[in-house]
Amino acid sequence: MPETVDAPRLDLAVRQALTRVIDPEIRKPITELDMVGAVSVDDTGHASVDLRLTIIGCPAADTIERDVRDAVSGVQGVTTVDVDVSIMSSDQRRALVEKLRGPRAQRTVQFGPDSLTRIYAVTSGKGGVGKSTITANLAVALAARGLRVGIVDADVYGFSIPAILGLVDDTGLAVKPTRVGDMILPPVGRDVKVISIGMFIDSAPGSGASGGAVAWRGPMLHRTIQQFLTDVFFGDLDVLLLDLPPGTGDIAISIGQLLPNAEVIVVTTPQPAAADVAERSGIVARQTGQRIFGVIENMGPLTQPDGSVLDLFGSGGGAEVARRLSQGQESPVPLLASVPLSLELRRGGDTGEPLVLANPSDPASAAIISVAEVIATRGRQLAGRRLGVSPR
């Protein structure tokens, strides 16, 4: 006669095991998200789990169901597992959105002055200096250190962050975000949460007449950035990076208005022409009330195997930009790093394999990782922030 099991004890053990199953998009246990319904284990050790997905066609459905089966199968005493997959009702989704956002009558920017998230707007005076590549690699380097990191790809006209992080499908289109009610869940690439206008474009570059291009003017640009900061659920982030378009246009001004607490990282190349325009982007940021955190020089001098130095784009531009931007600011603006000219850094951006992961010892990787270390050790600024507690 088969041995019977302690079914009530196994019920509890199965529920405990399910607390370790994390929704890959929301990054919280499925038990906290009310995605687990009834759980039962019969006398033979057969476990039944009701799993409620957020939406029909949930892109993480297979992953979640597999993780549930693996977690329950690992409970000692469970012999077989049956997972009954269903979809949340509209009331359940509404309750989930309210639980994640909090019971707010009106949606607001998630990363306002009281936020503990460190916000860095990465800007440049001109295009072609590798700003997006630096942003993506910096985000990945921070995530590799255990920080919770997000990117808003605010370069609406020249969005490239999804491709650099490998968030594209076989046709070259950026991976679409998941919508739960009126809440948008950002896709995750290389452990970084990402939102980009490219995720809402239905044609890839080179695939047709539109070619995935965006032709918008000021008001629509402002509304897009505002929606990214209100409707997209990033959760509790340690660091948020914004990849701004080059120059000093509408989006730079909108970011200054929406996120005056953001600090600015200016990316330039060593050549004087790039340094001149990089300085302007920093000045505009300061005019909107933002503080300049530092300067990163990209495509800097490269030490070759024979010991000679190749300075294809000159040298000293980053230090010069930092010196100029230090004028009029309470504390000096540092040159955070000089990232040497790197074919592998460029190649990693084309293949969706960030160099800081593919080859952390590469000189370009080492320079970017050094900036990540500076940011990671800053921690969260509590001074002047409301902590949401009150005396009893």
Score class of each variant (00 low, 15 high):
282 G>W: 00
315 S>D: 13
175 V>N: 03
83 V>I: 04
281 S>Y: 06
195 I>R: 01
330 E>W: 06
338 S>H: 07
157 Y>T: 12
58 C>Y: 03
357 L>R: 15
296 I>E: 01
268 T>S: 15
129 V>P: 02
157 Y>N: 12
275 A>M: 07
376 A>T: 14
218 G>A: 06
133 T>K: 02
266 V>T: 13
163 A>W: 08
312 L>E: 06
301 P>R: 02
130 G>T: 02
81 V>Q: 00
178 T>A: 08
188 V>L: 04
176 K>P: 08
380 R>D: 08
320 E>K: 13
98 E>L: 09
245 P>S: 14
52 R>M: 15
138 L>S: 03
224 T>H: 11
11 D>Y: 05
320 E>W: 11
178 T>G: 05
339 V>M: 06
336 L>T: 01
1 M>A: 13
274 A>Y: 08
87 I>E: 12
303 T>F: 05
269 T>L: 09
298 N>F: 07
9 R>E: 08
131 K>Y: 00
67 D>P: 02
171 T>C: 09
68 V>H: 01
282 G>Y: 00
55 I>T: 13
248 T>R: 14
197 I>C: 03
252 A>M: 14
115 S>G: 01
176 K>H: 13
199 M>L: 05
320 E>S: 13
329 Q>P: 01
51 L>A: 07
193 K>E: 06
181 G>I: 07
225 I>Y: 01
125 G>L: 00
289 G>F: 03
30 I>E: 03
343 L>M: 12
230 T>P: 09
251 I>W: 07
330 E>F: 07
61 A>M: 07
153 D>Y: 07
391 P>W: 11
28 K>Y: 10
